[in-house]
Amino acid sequence: MEIIVCIKQVPDTEELHKVKINSETRTLIREGIKNIINPFDENAIEEALRLREKIGGRVTVISMGPPQAETSLRKALAMGVDRAILLSDKSFAGSDTLATSYTLAMAIKKLGKFDLILSGKQAIDGDTAQVGPGLAEWLNLPQITYARKIEVNEKKIRAERTLEDSFELVESPLPALITVTKEINEPRYPSLKGVLRARKEKIIIWTAKDLKINEKRTGLEGSATRVIKVFTPPSPSGGEIISGETSKVAENLIKKLEEHRII
C-alpha cells in the first residue's frame, strides 16, 4: 500500500502562551520557541506506520515549507517513514490554504500512484483545517475528515468520523484522503536506530520547476486570501476577587450569582 502523509512544521504554541507577549509592543516574542511537527500530523505519521506494519507498503511524507522544515522531515524518518520530500521554493512563499493544497497536489501527482493520503485534522499555527479537504478537491478524491479510527481492507477504508455529538462510521473506496484527530493513536518516539538512519537519509527537495506547476496558482500569487493585520487580543483586566473566610466567600458568591439571576 502506498501511503502519503502531509506534515507541516509549526511553532510550538504550547510554549508560545507562556509569557511570550511583549507587553510594550503587544507583539509575540518568538525567540527560543522551537519548531515541531504539527502534533496532529504526528498522529497521521503514526497511523501510516501502523498500516504499513499491518499490510505492508511504503510511507512517504511530504512537507511544503522553508528549508528549516527539513528537521521535521528528519524526525519523520526517525519515526520510521520510508521517504521524505520537501517542497521548497521562493515562489511558494505566502501560500494560503488554496495555494498550499494546490502545490501539495502537484507534488502528489508527480509521485504517481498511491492508495491513501493522511493529514492532520488541522495545523496548530493557522488552525484552519482546510488543507486536507482542499488537497482532496484538487486531486478529486473522496475525503473523510476528523477520523478517530480507521481500518483498511482491500480497496476500501472505514473510518469513524467525529461529529460534535456523535460519530459517523463511514466507508470509502481507495484512494482517499483522511484527516486524523489525536484520539486515533499515541505517536511513537523515534528509536535510536531510527535517529541514526534519519541522519544519513537523503531528503528529496523539489522546487517549482520540478513540479511543473502553474506559478499563478502557488505562493501569494495563487492565494485568494490576504492577511492584512495581525494583533494580540487585548488582555482583559480581570474581575473581582472574592476573599475572606471560606464559608463567607461561598455565601458571597451565591449572592452574586443570584444578582445575575443565574440561580
Binding site: T13, I124, D127, R226, V227, I228, K229, F231
Partner: peptide
Amino acid sequence: AFGGNIMATIIS
C-alpha cells in the same frame, strides 16, 4: 490563530 495567541484580519 496560533491557538488564540494572536488575532488575524483577513480579506479576499
